[in-house]
Design a binder for these strands. Structure first.
Length: 110
DNA sequence: TGCGTGACCACGG
DNA sequence: CCCGTGGCCACGC
């Protein structure tokens, strides 16, 4: 595996997130075999905001909090995108996060 | 080249 | 749940 393709891997997994579902940075990191490097996933998402191919709004932190909303074009864009997909947001947090949670390890297998 | 910072997470108290 | 600590890795200065 090329180490340089880490960002690409992150983007690829993010692309696989179904509409109306969300996942966490840690879940993606763990799926890629770098569970301790969840922060880098966030950094990768930072560059994904400008990438229409990658739904960065479907990636939240481990408790379903929209920690990255501040990095979008507008602080409300992330929530609006999720709500448009049927994901209910309450106080910058995904309601029934466990129900909307999409774990690549479970869904894609490891 | 080295240090601080960050869209995080796990662990212990 | 909150708080402090350590670790991870990429990036900017």
């Amino acid at each position: 595996m090329d180490k340089d393709s880490f960002f690409q891997d992150v983007y690829e997994v993010a692309r696989l997130i179904p509409r109306g579902r969300v996942t966490s940075y840690g879940a993606i990191a763990k799926y890629l075999g770098v569970a301790r490097s969840a922060r880098v996933v966030g950094w990768a998402m930072n560059g994904a905001v400008t990438n229409q191919e990658v739904p960065a709004h479907r990636v939240v932190n481990r408790v379903g909090l929209l920690t990255g909303k501040n990095h979008f074009a507008t602080p409300t864009l992330m929530q609006e995108l999720l709500e448009a997909e049927g994901v209910e947001i309450r106080a910058d947090q995904v309601v029934n996060f466990d129900k909307h949670f999409w774990d690549p390890i479970v869904e894609l297998g490891l």
